[in-house]
Amino acid sequence: MVTVVEKKALYDSMMQKAKRIGEAAEQEAMEAEQNRTISQRVADIIREEKIHRLILPKEFGYPQLDWRTYVDMISTVGYYNLSAAWLTYFFCLHNAWVCYYPKHIRDEVINQGGFVADVFAPVGKVEPVEGGYLISGKYHFVSGINYCDWVGVGAMMKFDDNDKPERVGILLKVKDLKIVKDWDSLGLRGTGSNTIIVDKVFVEPDKILRFSKIIEKSQPPYDDFDEDYLYFNTPFYPGFYVGFAAMALGGAQRVLDEFKKHTVGRVRFSGVKEKESPTSQRVLSELTLEYISAKCLMEEYIKMMEADKGGPYEGAKYKAIRAKIIDKCVNIGTKALLTLGAHAVVKGHPVELFTRDLMTIGTHITSLYEDGIIGYGRHLFGIETNIQG
Rank of each mutant, 00 (worst) to 15 (best):
L188D: 09
M156C: 10
T191I: 14
I197F: 04
L177A: 09
R210Q: 05
N194A: 00
L172E: 04
V168E: 01
E166Q: 07
E204T: 07
R189P: 11
K178A: 12
V198Y: 06
I179M: 07
S193C: 07
I196D: 05
K173C: 10
K200W: 09
M156K: 07
K173M: 12
K164A: 12
I197T: 04
E204V: 06
D199I: 04
G192M: 08
F159A: 09
R210I: 00
M157V: 10
R167V: 00
D182K: 05
E166G: 12
V180K: 14
F159P: 06
W183C: 01
F159M: 09
D160Y: 05
D163F: 12
T195P: 02
W183F: 13
D176V: 08
S193L: 02
L186N: 15
I197N: 04
T191F: 12
V198R: 05
V198W: 05
L188H: 10
V203T: 02
N194H: 02
K207L: 01
M157E: 12
V153E: 00
A155D: 06
I197R: 02
V174G: 10
G190Y: 11
V153Y: 02
T195L: 00
G192I: 07
D163V: 08
F159R: 09
R210Y: 01
E204C: 00
A155Q: 07
K178H: 13
L177E: 10
K164S: 11
L171R: 01
S185Q: 13
I170Y: 05
S193Y: 05
K175F: 10
V203N: 00
M157I: 09
K173F: 11
I179N: 05
V198K: 01
F159W: 09
K175W: 09
T191A: 10
D176H: 11
K164L: 14
G152V: 03
V203I: 04
I179K: 04
E204M: 03
I196T: 04
S185V: 09
E204W: 03
L177N: 11
P165F: 06
L172M: 06
W183G: 00
L188R: 10
K178R: 15
F159G: 08
V153C: 01
P205A: 10
L177P: 11
